[in-house]
Design a protein around this nucleic acid. Structure first.
Lengths: 108, 108
DNA sequence: ATTATTTATCGTAATATTGCAATATATAAA
DNA sequence: TTTATATATTGCAATATTACGATAAATAAT
């Protein structure tokens, strides 16, 4: 074996795990923070910002896109990747809920 | 190649990625939600709640513990795992910050 | 049409993760 | 001490991820 038994878990748990997994690599965290820092889209310049080769970065962007955290629009010769505000807000809300619930537990 | 080039990224980015990675598997999400649902520690009963063998669950608990999201106290013959409220709150705050920043961006 | 530029895909090697049976460890109960 | 119970560790097979060179595809500029 070795493959995650996705089908044995609820859709909700899989969805949360998918988003979290996408954020589970420092390069992808760096991409998100870069997008927030420049307050606009990535249009070509990201390759100079990360210590990784272009194909690797392209792969990481694809994973963030698949998870729904960023979206890409073609813009001439370059591609415009930007944060999907709604997806980020949804995940943030889930974490806030967890955090609230955790604060209510009295034990250990 | 194949290994994440951890040392080429900032501590902050690695820390966020580590927490996110720990939440990046549906079994571990299920463990967290179970802990919040029962509002107390896991003391033995988690094995009946998940569609995985005992050693696999033990491994997932270990990863959540390594990431700092849960903590375990020995309690006689069973072990008391509970959520680390502070770690959860910290991650939730990070996400909230990202979400806020994302909402300020006007583009695409 | 040719060339330059940007991003994606393919192929592949290295490494990590997932899952479980078997077994070990550690405490509680008899 | 022996037995029962709960959790951890080991070892290993299957699969996934990460990284990058080579190359393809797609548009812009000449």
């Amino acid at each position: 074996m070795g493959a995650t038994k996705t089908e044995n878990f609820t859709d909700k748990h899989n969805e949360i795990a998918n988003i979290a997994r996408a954020l589970g690599h420092p390069a992808r965290v760096a991409i998100i923070e870069y997008l927030l820092k420049i307050k606009s889209c990535i249009c070509g310049d990201i390759v100079d910002e990360l210590p990784l080769a272009q194909p690797t970065i392209s792969q990481h962007l694809k994973e963030l896109k698949n998870a729904g955290l960023i979206k890409g629009n073609v813009n001439g010769t370059s591609i415009c990747y930007c944060i999907d505000e709604k997806a980020m807000a949804k995940f943030a809300k889930q974490l806030e809920k967890w955090s609230e619930q955790a604060s209510e537990i009295k034990c250990c």
